[in-house]
Computed example of a mutant assay.
Amino acid sequence: MKFAVIQFPGSNCDLDMLHAIRDNLNEKADYVWYQATSLEGFDAVLLPGGFSYGDYLRTGAIAKFAPIMSEVMRFATEGKPVLGVCNGFQILTESGLLPGALIRNQNLHFICKTVTLKVANNATLFTNQYDKEARLSIPIAHGEGNYYCDDATLAELTANQQIVFTYEGENPNGSREAIAGITNRAGNVLGMMPHPERAVEDLLGSADGLKLFQSIVNQWRETNAN
């Protein structure tokens, strides 16, 4: 399986993503520059964290116009896996690939700490290797991670089981219903604020994020078994 790690001006978690895939997952991964116009040969797309375009206007608001995003949107429409982490999540909401928005943390401060996540839905292509309602230790690092959506969107997310991760024990940024990660209705696009790529080996303090990437590979192998 081959992963594309998209690089925008201001990305700073791209190396973490590449390391997680190549060295911990033992799968193929390459950088794809934001000006590229093709994702030919890739099986999954990763939008890393950082500060794309300096977070001018709004987080992710300029990145959605990058040439590569047309390909990412096509990729998603075809049902292929797309994962956006932190700034990547913000880009996915700005692009309309995920509903809702990420706004300033409730306390108006940047937060960098390890939090506890609950796997709210382990029947997705991103969570099939986790136990139901498993608790994970995953770091966060963001200033605009407060997930917001209106009542109708929240009802839809709940009814379709699109809420995949929630914060457990504390809600660090004030996200509605303590939401930490959601999918699109088709289930092939995941956006999350916590950084699973920073929790792929015990040396980093937790390996709880590795199963997320293993889940993607597991689903891909099952789908392409024939």
Results as ranks from 00 to 15, higher is better:
2 K>F: 08
5 V>H: 05
6 I>F: 11
10 G>F: 14
10 G>L: 14
11 S>V: 09
12 N>W: 10
12 N>M: 10
20 A>V: 07
22 R>S: 07
24 N>Q: 14
30 D>A: 13
36 A>P: 04
38 S>H: 11
38 S>P: 01
44 A>H: 06
46 L>R: 01
48 P>W: 05
55 D>C: 06
56 Y>N: 14
60 G>E: 10
66 A>G: 08
66 A>C: 12
68 I>F: 03
72 V>F: 02
72 V>D: 11
73 M>R: 14
76 A>C: 12
82 V>G: 07
82 V>K: 09
82 V>F: 03
84 G>Q: 01
85 V>N: 02
86 C>H: 09
89 F>C: 01
89 F>A: 03
90 Q>H: 12
92 L>H: 07
94 E>R: 01
97 L>Q: 05
101 A>Y: 04
104 R>C: 06
110 F>E: 01
110 F>W: 11
115 V>C: 11
117 L>P: 02
120 A>I: 05
130 Y>W: 07
132 K>Q: 15
134 A>E: 15
136 L>N: 05
137 S>Y: 06
139 P>Y: 12
141 A>N: 12
143 G>H: 08
144 E>Q: 14
146 N>I: 07
146 N>P: 04
152 A>F: 06
154 L>T: 02
156 E>A: 15
157 L>M: 03
158 T>M: 08
171 N>R: 07
173 N>R: 10
173 N>D: 11
174 G>M: 06
175 S>K: 03
175 S>Y: 06
175 S>P: 06
181 G>N: 03
182 I>E: 00
182 I>S: 08
185 R>T: 15
192 M>W: 00
197 E>V: 08
198 R>H: 12
200 V>M: 01
200 V>C: 10
203 L>E: 15
207 A>V: 10
212 L>E: 07
216 I>A: 08
218 N>L: 11
221 R>C: 09
221 R>P: 03
223 T>Q: 15
223 T>H: 10
224 N>Q: 09
226 N>L: 14
226 N>I: 14
